[in-house]
Design a binder for these strands. Sequence first.
DNA 1: CCCTATGATTCGCC
DNA 2: GGCGAATCATAGGG
Length: 379
Amino acid sequence: MAAPLRPVPPQPAPRRSPPTAPLGHDTSDVLQQIMAITDQSLDEAQARKHALNCHRMKSALFSVLSEIKGKTAVSVQTQEEDPPDAQLLRLDNMLLAEGVSRPEKRGRGGAAAGSTATPGGCPNDNSIEHSDYRAKLSQIRQIYHSELEKYEQACREFTTHVTNLLREQSRVRPVSSGEIEHMVSTIHSKFSAIQRQLKQSTCEAVMTLRSRFLDARRKRRNFSKQATEVLNEYFYSHLSNPYPSEETKEELARKGGITVSQVSNWFGNKRIRYKKNTGKFQEEATMYTGKTSTVTKTRVSGGQTSCQSTPSPDSCGPFPLTSGSDMVLTLRTLAFLQPPPGGVCLQPLAHGSWQRATTSQPSSSPAGDSGSFNSDASD
DNA sequence: CCCTATGATTCGCC
DNA sequence: GGCGAATCATAGGG
């Protein structure tokens, strides 16, 4: 139906044929064309617009309007770009840092997922909270991206709509391309303000989640029985030098299912508390030394170059043996486990304090300590 | 609710 | 950076 029924003389534009054209031979043709056009659009308004467009005074009027507008219109594009907003930058950075900005990667170790301190891949207590945290974060991320997509799409649609409108209007009123651009940038800035709000609220959500998560992590949880046992075993079997090396800490962490820093904390606390009130730990000490002695002693005596230390409290007592005779007794029982290799005693410190690990570890203890522990613990 | 145990944090020192 | 010491904050038992 749309196929040209008859040869139409080439015309620059259909609007060049005003309805008021003088009658002629091809008047009917022109009329037909016009009718065809109006039939196609079937819009009276369109026709009127068209008529207006084709008015012979139009171009003159248009140029006058343009001139006037050029004179009167204030330069519209003064505030082209906002300065790169610091706050927005912060928001972006944070979203990026939290892995919200990126599309989600569901692989292992994709977006930085709170690295665990234990390289051995121990099942941490935090794993549940971690997964919970990540699930919530992923939820936030999903919402963020879907909202962002919605806004962007709306922005695109609106922009094209307005652009088309302006282009359309540019036929009847002077609309420069700069104006259109300005309008577009205005739209974009409005939408980016909305996006900024979205980012803000997303950030807030992440912060809330984060603080809740950190609070949860901050909550103290007692170690598992196994962890405590592992730690205590090492502590009491190395009473004379309870400073595990980094490797040993890792080993202990792995065995106890805790992190290395937790091991460090534990030993820090244990040393100080033991030292403060040795009597209180007597029972525990005998328990663990009894336990470990059966294990350690057999192993040690069977395997390694270890010698049983002479049960002399002075030589091997860990700490302030300043007073308390029964404490000495206890320590004597405890300390026999610590083998000073080659008969060299580790901490004959007069004042009974543990020697600093920096000096004692490399020089005298390593073979004895880590060796004995590793042979104990590795299987 | 109080008290103790205990894991974590902070600060100063070396 | 690791440690001791003090301290905080919570779990858990009575």
